[in-house]
Amino acid sequence: MGEVRVRQAAAADVLIVAALRLQAARVLGAGPEPGFLDRFARVWDAESDPTWVAELDGAHAGVLIARSVPSLPWPGVAEYVGGHLLVSMLFVAPGHADRGVAQALTAAMTTWARDRGLALTGEP
């Protein structure tokens, strides 16, 4: 058994991210949709939708897609730097459950968010 490798997805990874999202939808019962990969590729943006892909045993084992949201102004605070990171999707491919994929994806996202001063759920 191999080690989980996680990397942040770049614009060039759009079809990998789209395929993992499609796989997640299929696991949840969605039917086939011709043209989905192209439709996803037109709207996904690696900058505004920070995404991490997990690889395990030579296969794409999971994906975490998030959205960076700036904080709104607050009375008495002249300038607030930071914001929040919202997870829009966390998917672990069948056959890779209980192998640390979700934990590795979450750890990569957490490090990335904290390095940018973004709050995670439950943090001030």
Rank of each mutant, 00 (worst) to 15 (best):
H84G: 09
R67E: 14
M1Q: 03
L28Q: 15
A113E: 06
M89F: 01
D57C: 01
V101K: 04
G100W: 13
L56E: 09
R67G: 03
P34R: 10
D13R: 09
A97Y: 07
A41V: 01
M1S: 12
V17I: 04
R99E: 07
L105D: 14
V53A: 06
P32A: 11
A104V: 02
G83Y: 10
V27R: 09
A93Q: 03
A102N: 09
R26L: 15
L20H: 02
F91G: 00
E123Q: 12
E55T: 09
P70D: 07
W112V: 08
G35K: 07
V92W: 01
L86T: 01
H84D: 13
G122L: 06
W112G: 10
P34M: 06
W74A: 13
P124C: 08
F36Q: 08
V53T: 05
L20G: 01
T51D: 06
R21Q: 11
D115P: 01
G82Q: 07
S68H: 11
A24D: 10
R26N: 14
E47S: 01
A18Y: 00
V81A: 13
L28D: 14
I65A: 07
R7N: 04
A66Y: 01
Q23W: 05
A54Q: 06
Q23C: 13
A30F: 09
L86N: 03
W112C: 05
Q103V: 04
V4T: 15
D57L: 08
E3R: 15
I65K: 07
W52D: 03
A113V: 10
P94F: 07
A18F: 00
A119Y: 02
G29W: 11
R42M: 12
V53H: 03
A11P: 05
R26E: 12
Q103D: 10
G35S: 04
L56C: 13
E33W: 04
A97C: 06
F91N: 00
V14F: 03
I65V: 15
L105S: 14
D13Q: 11
L56R: 14
V4L: 12
D13L: 10
A11K: 12
L37I: 05
G95S: 09
A66I: 02
R7L: 11
T121N: 10
Q103C: 01
R42Q: 15
A30Y: 11
V6C: 14
